[in-house]
């Protein structure tokens, strides 16, 4: 019989950690200043659920736009044309540099310094589109625009590293078979890059979900905006933040399960 080494230090530390967790949970659960009944009351209230719905829509729409934009920028970034790759690099620099809250406030107040969006044919009087900003840039649009522009800057770097991870040999083999570079990208490089791209993209999605709370600064109608609105009338700030927190965590749990299966499907064959 083999007697394994006993790690006394590890055992003692585990006991301390467990006690600390129990103590924290106990003190929160029994603290009379936390009104758990209020949490229960608002957890499924229609306005909170509507806020949750907006948060999910803002996150998902922003994520889809950001991913598409990120692929475009990543491809531009590795373009042989210096001008195109510089523009892409500059985009990443700017939108990664601006704090999200600043970007959202700027977009939310775009009407202050731009009166209307006009697209015409230069040199002529022909006007194709002319709409006032206030009609186009609703808080929802500003939220989605801010989140997707900023998200795309981070995701472009992820996509680019994924594209670069595919060896030159793959491109050459595709080229030798007569594939054009756009077909090579679509059928050979992107499908393989997906395996590298997907795990960090999952983190970006969770980041996007959490960042969507920041749109409350421009009254984006999201979960946090709603929760704060209710707290403003009943002064149950902490309880409503707990309600919001529970929903954010639940969404992340559901998403993580989906991510697990998606990653398993694209795993190395």
């Amino acid at each position: 019989m083999v007697v394994p080494v006993r790690h006394y230090g590890r055992m003692i530390f585990a006991v301390i950690v467990v006690l600390a967790v129990i103590g924290t949970v106990y003190s929160i659960a029994t603290n009379p200043n936390f009104e758990w009944s209020v949490v229960a009351e608002f957890l499924f209230s229609p306005s909170i659920l509507r806020g949750l719905g907006s948060t999910l829509v803002i996150t998902i729409v922003s994520m889809v736009i950001a991913v598409v934009l990120a692929v475009v920028i990543a491809v531009m970034r590795i373009s042989p044309s210096r001008i195109i790759s510089s523009v892409a690099a500059f985009y990443v620099f700017v939108f990664r540099g601006i704090p999200l809250i600043v970007l959202l406030i700027l977009l939310g107040n775009l009407g202050l310094f731009l009166k209307s969006i006009t697209i015409g044919i230069p040199g002529t009087q022909v006007v194709l589109i002319d709409v006032p900003i206030s009609e186009v840039i609703t808080p929802f649009v500003a939220s989605v625009a801010g989140l997707s522009l900023a998200g795309a800057a981070y995701m472009a770097e992820i996509v680019r590293s994924g594209l670069l991870a595919i060896g030159r040999g793959q491109r050459e083999a595709a080229k030798a078979l007569g594939l054009t570079s756009s077909r090579t990208l679509r059928f050979i490089v992107l499908p393989q890059a997906l395996r590298v791209i997907l795990p960090p993209m999952g983190n970006e999605f969770i980041g996007m979900l959490k960042a969507s709370a920041i749109v409350s600064v421009i009254a984006g109608g999201d979960l946090l905006t709603v929760a704060q609105g209710i707290a403003g009338t009943n002064y149950r700030t902490i309880e409503l933040l707990i309600v919001a927190t529970i929903w954010y965590l639940l969404v992340i749990i559901v998403f993580s399960i989906g991510q697990y299966f998606l990653e398993r499907r694209t795993a190395e064959k």
Partner: peptide, 24 residues
């Protein structure tokens, strides 16, 4: 142009040192 170069390339098959099969 790329499309024309590709059309001509189809007539020439190539086998590489490191195979370069498409792993997916």
């Amino acid at each position: 142009r790329e499309a024309d170069a590709c059309r001509k390339r189809v007539e020439v098959g190539m086998v590489f040192q490191h195979f370069n099969l498409f792993p997916h």
